[in-house]
C-alpha cells in the first residue's frame, strides 16, 4: 500500500484545552477514510489540521514524505494538492459558478483560461449543473452550491480531498444529490478523508471507519465490523444514539 498522508501523535490545544490528543492516522492512496464522532469531539479540527488551516502543538502531518504541519514553506503549495470542501459551501458570492471554478486553477496552477473552462464545463456536466455555469451562488440551492464546491475543489487536481460535514447544512431532500457525487468519486478511486453524520452514507463509501471521541481515536476498523460489531462501549453508545428502537 502506498501511503499518501501520515499523521503522527497530532496534538492540538487552545491554551490548556486539548482538542486533539495524540492522534495517529495513515491514509493510503485511493482509500476513503470516514471519521465520525459526537459534536465537539475534534473531528472537524482534525480535518483542518490536515491541510494546515490549524496549527498543531505536537506531532506532525506528513504528505507524500513531506512534513506539511507544522509547515515550513508556503502552506499554499501544499493546499493545491489537498482539496477541502466545507459545511457552508463557501463559494465566492461575487463570482459566477464558472468563475468560481477557474479562479484557483488560473491563478495557482497557471492554467490557460480556455483549458480551465473546458475542464470546468465537463465537471459541471458530470454533476448535472452545466446549465448553472453563469449563475451566481445566491441563485443556487444548497445542494447545488455544495456540488459546485466539490467540483471547484476537483479543479485543482487534489491528491487528497477533505470533506468537512458537507451535508450538515443541507435540507434533507438535498443530501442525496451531494452524497451521490461523493460516492462516484470514491468509485473512481479518489483518496478522501470525510467527516460526516450520515452513517448509512459512511457505511456505503468508507474503506475504513474512524471513531473520535474526546480528541482521541477510540476505535477504527472496516465498516462492516465497525457498525455491526463495535468493540468499545463508547462507540456502541454513539451508534445507539442514531437508532430509535
Amino acid at each position: 500500500m502506498n501511503e499518501i498522508l501520515k499523521v503522527e501523535n497530532l496534538t492540538k490545544a487552545y491554551d490548556d484545552l486539548k482538542v486533539l490528543d495524540g492522534v495517529d492516522l495513515t491514509v493510503s492512496k485511493g482509500e476513503v477514510v470516514v471519521i465520525v464522532g459526537p459534536s465537539g469531539c475534534g473531528k472537524s479540527t482534525f480535518l483542518r489540521c490536515l491541510n494546515g488551516l490549524e496549527d498543531i502543538q505536537e506531532g506532525s502531518v506528513v504528505f507524500n514524505d513531506e512534513v506539511i504541519n507544522p509547515f515550513k514553506g508556503s502552506p499554499a503549495k501544499v493546499r493545491e494538492k489537498i482539496g477541502m470542501v466545507f459545511q457552508s459551501y463557501e463559494l465566492f458570492p461575487h463570482k459566477t459558478v464558472l468563475q468560481n471554478m477557474i479562479l484557483a486553477p488560473m491563478k495557482v496552477r497557471k492554467a490557460k483560461k480556455k483549458d480551465a473552462e473546458k475542464e470546468a464545463l465537463a465537471l459541471l456536466d458530470r454533476v448535472g449543473l452545466l446549465s448553472k455555469k453563469d449563475s451566481y451562488p445566491r441563485q443556487l440551492s444548497g445542494g447545488q452550491k455544495q456540488r459546485v464546491a466539490i467540483v471547484r475543489a476537483l479543479m485543482m487536481h487534489p491528491e487528497v480531498l477533505l470533506l468537512d460535514e458537507i451535508t450538515a447544512a443541507l435540507d434533507p431532500e438535498m443530501v442525496r444529490e451531494v452524497l451521490d457525487v461523493v460516492i462516484n468519486l470514491a468509485k473512481e478511486g479518489r483518496t478522501m478523508v470525510i467527516v460526516t453524520h450520515e452513517l448509512s452514507f459512511a457505511r456505503a463509501v468508507a474503506d475504513r471507519m474512524i471513531f473520535i471521541d474526546g480528541g482521541k481515536i477510540v476505535e477504527e476498523g472496516a465498516p462492516g465490523e465497525f457498525f455491526d460489531d463495535p468493540k468499545t462501549d463508547r462507540l456502541k453508545k454513539f451508534l445507539e444514539s442514531f437508532s430509535y428502537n
Partner: peptide, 26 residues
C-alpha cells in the same frame, strides 16, 4: 466571514491572491 479566507486558502491561493481576487472585490 473568516471561512471565506479559509476556503480561498484551501484552494491553494496565497494570502495576497486571496485578498486580490476574493476579499477586496467583495
Amino acid at each position: 466571514p473568516k471561512i471565506q479566507y479559509e476556503s480561498s486558502a484551501a484552494l491553494g491561493l496565497t494570502t495576497t491572491q486571496t485578498y486580490t481576487y476574493v476579499i477586496i472585490p467583495q
